[in-house]
Amino acid sequence: MENVIYQFIVGIFISAAASLLGVFAILKRMALVGDALSHVALPGLALAMVFKINPFIGAAAFLAISVIGIWLLEYKSTLSIETLTGVFFTAALALGALLIPELELLEALFGDISKLTAVDVALSVVFSLILIIVLLAIHKKLAIHMVSQEMAHSIGIKSRQLEFIYLMLFALGVALGIKFIGALLMGALIIIPAAAAKNIARGLNEFMILSVLFGVISAIAGVYISDITGHSPGPVFILVGAVIFVASLIWRMFRK
């Protein structure tokens, strides 16, 4: 029983944080980055397993290093951030697949929250809250930056720093989600609720609220259904999210 409550808490907080990130990923059409970064987390997970440290810490550390790399490269070269993360992604996925023992590979790819400890729960809640608070604090600047970098610059927004903070938050979100949903589906945890919310929302506030709402509903349904059926919650979450997305699409068609 205690474990199911842990699962609900972890699922709700992490999906709230991830779906809020998704709003900005969609605004900037950065959907791919989330996907790519989630795979970059794999070698981090692998190293955490090898050195027997908390997988969240391992993934977060590896992601942070990758983000700094991507961020620096983006300014040194003319390549787009998608291209860069795309390269990091395949390399990291390959490295991760080599390093992670075959038995644990499935868990790393699809997530597993059947054995949560109190420490896992505390880490998830604290870091999810940090992510949400920082993101809300910068969301206005971020939105301006995403609709026009030049206009952002003209009112003194420091685009470089802002992009760095955003990427770091993204990395944090991915590291948080890895345990819940796994590397393979993490991108979907970020994107699906926001994609559904975009079909319905007319304003930015609505967009953010609906995205978080859809994320949390999917997480609750995911944990609940998986608890009954015995499936792992990650794939169930994604399927629930996909159903919400289809519903939002129908809504959108009928509104027009």
Binding site: A143, V147, A197, A201, R202, G203, L204, E206
Partner: peptide, 10 residues
């Protein structure tokens, strides 16, 4: 999903 008012407010 960004209204004109929100855009000005940002």
């Amino acid at each position: 999903p960004l209204t004109v008012f929100e855009f000005l407010k940002l």
